[in-house]
């Protein structure tokens, strides 16, 4: 069983449905014991970094996630969930994230419309099993105003929007996806299909 972590931020049902369509055994939960026994963790989220990390810290889930992941459990963060995997976020202040990937979450300060909203194409940086069923330049659906800034060692794919916006990242057993695979049509499903093989391996 894989656990979609419920910490009160955003619509988890669409992420759950996407995994269920792929016959992945997922459960939405905020219970510490479920996170402990889960085969892998899924961290979705929509909203502000500050509120999200506070909710995770207050419920004690942050520590559980960090412990489980340090022992090798796989986790995938989606949209705001990916941003929370980094060390620091700068939305409405200066907040510590989960620190599972090195780098910060900063405002996407480009001379274009913000939020970065709509379909953008993926540019591949390095090979990874998560890219197994998609091709470079396929489109995925983004909605966000902040983005990951790092030394890019974790970068698997990015999208161009004024800057290089990290769209798929990985640090060992920690994956992050900035866009919404559950809203990205066939391409999104194919990414989750590849991740299914990763999470079940």
């Amino acid at each position: 069983m894989h656990v979609i972590i419920d910490y009160g931020m955003g619509n988890l049902a669409s992420v759950q449905r996407a995994f269920e369509k792929l016959d992945v055994d997922v459960k939405i939960s905020n219970k510490i014991e479920d996170l402990r026994t889960a085969k892998s963790l899924i961290l979705p989220g929509v909203g502000a970094f500050r509120d999200a990390i506070k909710a995770l810290n207050d419920s004690g889930l942050s520590d559980v996630i960090k412990e489980e992941v340090s022992q090798g459990k796989k986790i995938i963060g989606i949209c705001l969930g990916m941003q929370l995997l980094y060390e620091k976020g700068f939305e409405y202040g200066d907040y510590h994230g989960l620190g599972l990937i090195k780098g910060d979450i900063k405002y996407l300060d480009v001379n274009l419309k913000i939020p970065h909203m709509g379909w953008n194409n993926l540019k591949f940086v390095k090979e990874d099993p998560i890219l197994k069923y998609i091709n470079e330049d396929e489109y995925v659906y983004f909605v966000h105003s902040y983005y990951a800034v790092s030394d890019s060692t974790e970068l698997i794919a990015y999208s161009q929007y004024g800057n290089k916006v990290p769209s798929i990242v990985r640090n060992k057993n920690v994956y992050g996806i900035q866009f919404h695979p559950e809203k990205s049509g066939e391409t999104g499903l194919n990414i989750l299909k590849a991740y299914k093989e990763i999470m079940e391996s």
Binding site: R17, Y141, K183, G188
Partner: peptide, 8 residues
């Protein structure tokens, strides 16, 4: 609709 489609 939300159950059936996977675009925004």
């Amino acid at each position: 609709v939300a159950e059936e489609i996977n675009i925004p």
